[in-house]
């Protein structure tokens, strides 16, 4: 690890202000992804701001029937929360499908949204990667890309967002509450939170420098059958090849968001007016750009969606 200085923030606004006051700052919460990347010198912050003790570890009801999840709520606690299990089952399922018990005990809600891609070329500092080193090229395009994106890709990057939790947040229309370095606050709809790679795959979210996530909010429960179906190379502790987060109503209508397809959780609302896995998948995957190695994801999405719809029917 490169040397860094370390300080603890006293409040969310203090964290955001500190982040812009010291160049090269990064927040550290659970640290399970950041420290991995720091050991590999993919991330080289010069200053860490510890945000673990800001009291943002509560899940509370809000007016109108939704919930506010503190940014520092650990993945285990979010998945185990009685209200989340009852009303937002797809979120519990997605969290429990990700990582290991040890990692879920440490990883946080906000940190999970901000985790970096597991593209092997991003992780290998000897390889070209526009995300790790802008302008260096993309070794994944034309390389080993079986796991990589087929939707919303660019000539610069075909990485995927690896979070399972974010896919469930997308299907639930979550909001990301933040405080900026100037002390003002805003809520970013999850649909607008992550970016497509475009020419700047190194910029992964629409957060401004120093902007600090304080909570993730869920609108009031929408009922329905909640399913998170993840397809992966191992039965446990592996990233998704593809995943489907679904909330299906008794009339068969549903919401569907997909993981493992793109640089952000992939959801096409227009497809949700259709019925049948083939029709929905056809619209969701319109414009797919595949490689010989990852073209299998196209039929896999349709078949997994078919299994989800069958399960929802009971």
């Amino acid at each position: 690890m490169k040397a860094f200085t370390f300080e603890r923030a006293h409040s969310p606004a203090d964290a955001a202000a500190k982040a812009v006051a010291t160049p090269g700052s990064t927040f550290i919460a659970g640290g399970t992804n950041l420290l991995d990347l720091m050991k590999l010198q993919i991330e080289t912050p010069r200053h860490l701001i510890d945000v673990n003790r800001l009291g943002l570890d509560k899940i509370e009801g809000v007016d109108g029937g939704g919930v506010r999840i503190g940014a520092l709520v650990r993945n285990t606690d979010l998945a185990a929360d009685a209200r989340v299990r009852k009303d937002y089952g797809v979120l519990s399922r997605a969290l429990l499908a990700g990582a290991s018990g040890q990692l879920r005990n440490k990883a946080t809600t906000a940190g999970n949204l901000l985790q970096r891609t597991r593209c092997p070329y991003f992780y290998d500092t000897n390889q070209a990667c526009n995300k790790r080193k802008p302008g260096s090229g993309c070794a994944a395009i034309g390389g080993f890309n079986r796991n990589l994106a087929i939707m919303g890709t660019s000539e610069a990057c075909i990485a995927t967002q690896p979070s399972d939790m974010a896919v469930a947040m997308r299907v639930l229309d979550a909001g990301v509450e933040t405080v900026k370095p100037d002390g003002t606050t805003r809520t970013i709809p999850i649909a607008d939170f992550h970016r497509l790679p475009g020419d700047t795959p190194n910029i992964e979210t629409n957060l401004i420098p120093g902007e600090f996530i304080t909570a993730v909010t869920l609108p009031k429960p929408i009922g329905g059958t909640h399913i998170y179906q993840k397809v992966r190379d191992r039965a446990s502790y592996a990233f998704a090849l593809i995943s489907v987060a679904a909330v299906v109503q008794p009339d068969g209508r549903g919401r569907f968001a997909f993981g493992g397809l793109a640089h952000k959780p992939w959801r096409v609302e227009a497809a949700e007016r259709l019925s049948g896995a083939k029709e929905i998948a056809g619209t969701v995957l319109a414009g797919a750009k595949t490689t010989p190695q990852n073209a299998f994801k196209v039929p896999l999405v349709e078949r997994t969606l078919g299994a989800v719809l069958a399960e929802a029917k009971g």
């Binding site: 370390f6 860490l48 510890d50 040890q102 005990n105 440490k106």
Partner: peptide, 12 residues
């Protein structure tokens, strides 16, 4: 709670 002690800083 069990955690991976390699992926956390003592200072945290």
């Amino acid at each position: 709670r069990r955690i991976n002690s390699c992926l956390t800083l003592a200072a945290m």
